[in-house]
Write a protein that binds this DNA or RNA. Structure first.
Lengths: 204, 204
DNA sequence: ATAATAACATACGAGACGTATGTCAATTTA
DNA sequence: TAAATTGACATACGTCTCGTATGTTATTAT
């Protein structure tokens, strides 16, 4: 019965897939909509019908990647027994993910420049929200000091982002990665209640 | 004798001034070179002769703003007696400066997206370098743990950047600013040697 | 004073985006 | 079942922008 909505969903997926490739390889500004749509076996007509304009397509791509990142990071953080260790692991996971060209170019560089503040994206930035919830739980458990959860989440994700940019631009990523992760975990340990400063920080 | 180089310097300054305004108001992509140069009383000919292309103009603008920021932040940090307090003050100063449209739009959003990693800009990112030097001094004084100085500087500046983005997007900047600064200073205190954890962190 | 240099203006061409219009398959209705 | 309608997508067009290539003129050197 519904062959049209199925076809439309397929075409949307095709366009998003092609856009992920084009945006990652050439950047948002450098990606041509003609080439992009031709790569998906369609024309610009389909694009403007489905996404409104070029920015709308970027928003859709960002939402897909962002939700994917949040799922992966949460799975990694949930493996840890200690929830604070989970937060650290989650941060390290973000740093590693930010090395992927798609994530870095699309979500971290072009995303904020074109779409503005991540917390006001249509996708709401799942990554940010997940980190904030973890911070709130840790505050309730008196593991970390009663800092503003949103503030802590944003600064942590910002630190992770810049760590990733640094690593990616480096000529020896394997060399700087551990330095970045150590620095990140040291910073995060600043949130700990004094009681936990030694017990947890000693592991770093 | 040298009336030509004087005139050229004047025109360069005019173009950079006009570019600061245009880039800050319309963003890099949205700024038209025709309008921009006309605003400076010149044409695109002068622009391409002086800066090569649009990116070259952005690089010149970024360099000017960045060195200005570094000077201002250093002056603020130098006022503190305790050097770690100076680092905290410097970070808070960066957060406040990042609220200025020129800084945020040009240096923090479009800069990395168009020019790439800040540490590899022609201007070398004076802000980053200044913070790194402060961190190195504090390590030598055994005030903070022997973390990689570059890593710490980059994560701190990244945290400050995201704090600023958050504040700027907020509807009540005066409300979130203290939260952001407190979170920043808590994170920074994670770098402290355990001896100093209480003595310094108690002031927060 | 004349020639040469170079800083800048002007003219041109190549894309790229967004819209307006056209077309045809899929669904609905009679 | 057949006609009509809807809408997803293609095509054609206009406008804007960047970068280059060529011209022009003031300044400097000889």
């Amino acid at each position: 019965m519904n062959k049209r909505i199925q076809n439309m969903a397929d075409n949307r997926a095709k366009l998003i897939t092609a856009a992920r490739k084009a945006f990652a390889e050439k950047g948002y500004a450098g990606a041509s909509m003609d080439e992009l749509t031709a790569d998906a076996g369609l024309t610009r007509g389909a694009l403007y019908h489905n996404f409104g304009d070029k920015r709308g397509l970027l928003a859709a791509v960002v939402e897909q990647i962002d939700s994917d990142m949040a799922m992966r990071a949460h799975a990694i953080g949930a493996k840890e027994q200690d929830e604070f260790q989970g937060l650290l692991a989650e941060g390290a996971a973000y740093i590693r993910m930010a090395l992927e060209p798609e994530v870095q170019r699309i979500v971290l560089l072009d995303g904020p420049a074109v779409l503005g503040d991540p917390s006001q994206w249509p996708s709401q930035s799942s990554c940010l929200q997940a980190t904030r919830l973890t911070v709130e739980r840790l505050i309730a458990q008196h593991v970390i000091k009663p800092v503003d959860a949103e503030a802590a989440a944003r600064l942590l994700s910002g630190a992770a982002l810049n760590a990733a940019l640094w690593i990616a631009a480096s000529s020896t990523p394997q060399d700087v990665m551990p330095k970045a992760i150590q620095a990140f975990q040291l910073l995060a340990s600043g949130l700990l209640e004094n009681d936990n400063q030694f017990s947890v920080a000693a592991k770093l």
